[in-house]
Design a protein around this nucleic acid. Structure first.
Length: 322
DNA sequence: CGATGCTTAGGCCGGTGTGC
DNA sequence: GCACACCGGCCTAAGCATCG
């Protein structure tokens, strides 16, 4: 797992459909899916797992089965636990090097035990990351159900972990919720791109958890109508731009649609440059095309007039012939 | 393939509603 | 009467979609 993924939850967009109506349930579903997803993707760091297993053995808190197995291995002399130092070095650092090496040897010969410890370690890692207090297995089960019902071509936006818990646990106004939702909508459109072109309509559509306007029309949320107007969309987008959302927008004069971008991925100056250069190149291409067309038309005319003059000359020839 | 119509963002503006 | 939030209409030009 990469360092910068640590702070984000990634989830299928459709979970967001009830965000405006039942925020807590929506965000808890996202946590369930995130937990399930992480438990699948998590790569085990063997060193940390060895260390944490020894640490938890000394400190207490291992599942009984694992603890009993370790005790047995100790009785057989395959691992030496030092009940005086409890894994701490003379300098006071937790460095159970010998125990870890011995445990690794045990893992190499007893694959079932290794897998059992992996399962436990994964669980504690995930619980630690998500700071959850609920029933881990139930959450995992729910996450699995969600994962199995993801539609095709579903966008997967990401939410900052702290923001997610903030919105789940603190009271928010409807406008604060729609701003958060629009932020998610924008992220679902951007994906991994630093910037891209879109419309206000699609941002709002995604904010309500729908992939396309076609999907949204099937079960249009009442609040979509409330917020999809000039004043409200501008207010929402302005709020996102001045707030701490790492997002901004740019629309060239009279252009159809707008560009949205991550502040941390591209500067306003750079985006404007890119957008105006695109428009300049398009204009140049249009000029080229119109010149080609003009030339073709001119050539046609010339050919036609030559044909005509030939006809006249032929006529004159035939007329003079007896 | 080209002409045409349609959609879109944003500047501007007038009108309505609300609280003081 | 005043300040402010809200809403939709009109307008422009870009550029996308579509039709013949």
């Amino acid at each position: 797992m990469k360092q910068n993924d640590d702070r984000y939850f990634q989830f299928p967009l459709f979970l967001f459909r009830n965000f405006m109506y039942d925020t807590e349930k929506c965000l808890n579903d996202i946590v369930c899916y995130g937990l399930y997803d992480l438990s699948n993707k998590l790569n085990i760091d063997l060193f940390r797992m060895l260390e944490h297993t020894i640490y938890t053995y000394y400190r207490g808190g291992l599942p009984n089965e694992i603890k009993e197995r370790l005790t047995k291995f100790a009785e057989l002399g395959e691992i030496d636990f030092n009940e005086n130092y409890l894994g701490f070095s003379g300098q006071g650092d937790f460095e159970p090097t010998t125990e870890m090496e011995q445990l690794e040897m045990i893992f190499n010969t007893d694959n079932d035990f290794y897998l059992e410890v992996c399962k436990w370690f994964k669980k504690v890692s995930v619980i630690n990351f998500f700071e959850i207090s609920g029933n881990y297995d139930a959450i995992l089960q729910k996450g699995k159900i969600i994962a199995e019902s993801i539609p095709d071509k579903e966008p997967f936006p990401m939410i900052d972990k702290n923001k997610l818990f903030e919105f789940r646990d603190e009271e928010k106004t409807e406008f604060q919720l729609i701003v958060f939702a629009a932020n998610v909508g924008m992220r679902s459109i951007l994906g991994t791109k630093p910037y891209c072109k879109t419309t206000k309509e699609l941002i709002l559509c995604r904010a309500f958890g729908f992939n396309t306007m076609r999907d949204l029309e099937k079960e249009k949320p009442p609040l979509f109508k409330k917020y999809f107007n000039r004043y409200q969309t501008d207010k929402i987008l302005n709020e996102i731009e001045i707030g701490n959302w790492n997002l901004f927008r740019y629309s060239s004069q009279n252009m159809r649609g707008m560009f949205i971008a991550y502040k941390r991925r591209i500067s306003l100056e750079k985006l404007v440059e890119v957008v105006e250069e695109k428009s300049r190149k398009r204009k140049i291409q249009q000029l080229k095309n119109s010149k080609i067309i003009a030339r073709e038309n001119a050539m046609k005319k010339i050919v036609e007039s030559q044909l005509n003059s030939n006809e006249y000359s032929n006529e004159s020839v035939t007329s003079t012939t007896p």
